[in-house]
């Protein structure tokens, strides 16, 4: 039997055209042994939810620099739920004002990471959240 890998979707919703941070996180997760599906720039919440479903991911990382997080994130959460993917851990990275963090967490986001966050912390958190609730297969 093959081992179970943690699968993570890294997506870049919204219109800002800057994905350096998203790529740094994607590589760090790969180097931590995860399978990372990278979908590129300018993803709509619908595109993200569809990819999360088809790829049967354990976690979704959203990188948002545009300031549109309060519109985009709740929509992604809603679509994941509508697709029956309530178990997927969602985390958000980028430029998010502290005052918005509680609202995002209230929408079901597991963690919000600012620009200074170490990738080690993100890796550790994903392992913690995903393995904590991973449905045993078989």
């Amino acid at each position: 039997m093959a081992e179970r890998k943690i699968r993570v979707l890294i997506a870049k919703p919204g219109l800002d055209g800057h994905d350096r941070g998203a790529k740094v996180v994607a590589r760090a997760l790969r180097d931590a042994g995860m399978e990372v599906i990278y979908t590129g720039l300018r993803q709509t919440p619908e595109m993200i939810a569809e990819a999360a479903l088809q790829e049967d991911v354990d976690a979704v990382g959203l990188s948002i620099l545009s300031g549109a997080h309060m519109a985009l994130v709740p929509r992604v959460m809603e679509l994941l739920r509508a697709n029956g993917q309530d178990h997927v851990c969602v985390f958000v990275g980028g430029i998010i004002p502290d005052t918005d963090v509680p609202a995002l967490l209230a929408h079901g986001v597991k963690a919000v990471y600012g620009p200074g966050t170490s990738t080690e912390k993100i890796v550790e958190d994903i392992r913690h959240y995903v393995l904590g609730q991973m449905i045993p297969q078989g």
């Binding site: 399978e35 599906i37 990278y38």
Partner: peptide, 22 residues
Amino acid sequence: PSSPFSGGALLGDRVRMRDLVG
């Protein structure tokens, strides 16, 4: 391919498959 060092992988083919969305 998976990375032979970490066993992880970066799967980026979807980036080019945007016309199939929806």
